[in-house]
Write a protein that binds this DNA or RNA. Sequence first.
DNA 1: CAGGTAACTTACGCAGGAGTAAGATGGCGG
DNA 2: CCGCCATCTTACTCCTGCGTAAGTTACCTG
Lengths: 217, 217
Amino acid sequence: MTAPSDARSRGTRLPRVRRRRQLLAAAQEIFVARGYHAAAMDEIAERAGVSKPVLYQHFPGKLELYLALLEEHSEALVEKQREALESTDDNRQRVIASFRAYFDFVAGDGEAFRLVFESDLRNLPAVREKSEQTFQRCAELIGEVIRQDTSISDEEAHLLSIGLVGMAETSARYWINTQGSVPKDAAELLVARLAWRGISGWDLHRGGEGQPTGQDS
Amino acid sequence: MTAPSDARSRGTRLPRVRRRRQLLAAAQEIFVARGYHAAAMDEIAERAGVSKPVLYQHFPGKLELYLALLEEHSEALVEKQREALESTDDNRQRVIASFRAYFDFVAGDGEAFRLVFESDLRNLPAVREKSEQTFQRCAELIGEVIRQDTSISDEEAHLLSIGLVGMAETSARYWINTQGSVPKDAAELLVARLAWRGISGWDLHRGGEGQPTGQDS
DNA sequence: CAGGTAACTTACGCAGGAGTAAGATGGCGG
DNA sequence: CCGCCATCTTACTCCTGCGTAAGTTACCTG
């Protein structure tokens, strides 16, 4: 568990690009495990089997190193979300795919989600903006879908989307932190069903265009 | 905005208990504005119109000072939540009250919610536990209500509760961060409605005990 | 009004960790 | 085989910010 990810090659010289990738991987492990503040550049270097100045030949400072990782994984999440929503035309399936995307994100890539969802650097404007922007972009993708099928205002649709994204993020994080109690598929479907029941046929009472037929399991 | 909350009394001696309360208030302002790491004990002392050692006569260290505040506001949230759920017997009203409690919490007490929801010290076990425990307790309160009215398993009910609490927290935070775009009442009701549509009559398809009558606006 | 004690101050020690000179090394083109 | 440049290392500097030692002032009690 504390085994160096790539110290097999202590003393080995690497071409620039390869080394950079390896440094990013080492940094991710440390940042994820300790958070930004408790992570020491010395430890990151050590984990990569390299001395500290090497780190500074690839990144101007600790902050930039962190931001590089944050950027990468934020984009990955938005991309996953976009793919999920484009994967089908059926809105119910869309909801399921969307939640699955969140659970996949949280389950994948060495717990990188902790950088995006649990950053201890949110007080830095640059980081706060990135986090919120990522969140907003995910919500906006969902918001568009909602707007297509309902007659509610843009602002309201956006607020609903925010709520749904929050639900997805929160439940996915809860699920990953309590691994073993609920299988992934079941958790995804359960929460997706909650969301779908919430939004489907939203404006029926306004004289909507057809009640969801109720088969939802 | 940067006006010292209580430096009117620079040079004034205060009885111990009064001073302690004032120090907590000053600390809250700084911690909320800067986060734990960027907050300096010097600045907290200055804000209170007092010199640093005074701080240390009341709290053993920065961490304990922070934990005192975290504890206080975490308990306040859980209490608000409990009151909301006890305020009525009608589950639909319960949902609304529950969301209102979150919005109230977020709107009140000098943005103290940032300590509970956005702490930059979550990597410290003591803080992580407190946060998660607060979250769990809120979810558990809701979970009990859900279990009373549905036949789903305890684990599933809990997961749903987690999702709902996440939705409440997220939408409340979004609302407070974009003050002015949506009135509080409208936001609360909108999201509460989303949640209520999601859970009400959950297990009808199993042969439940009566369909919700559909009047939900 | 004197003396004691709680409240408070100035001024410092000290540790941890980011970032940096200056020098060593190894492989590759000539 | 030799010199050159990219790669890497040791061994520092320096700053920030927590926590404290020692000394000072106001209030209160006898």
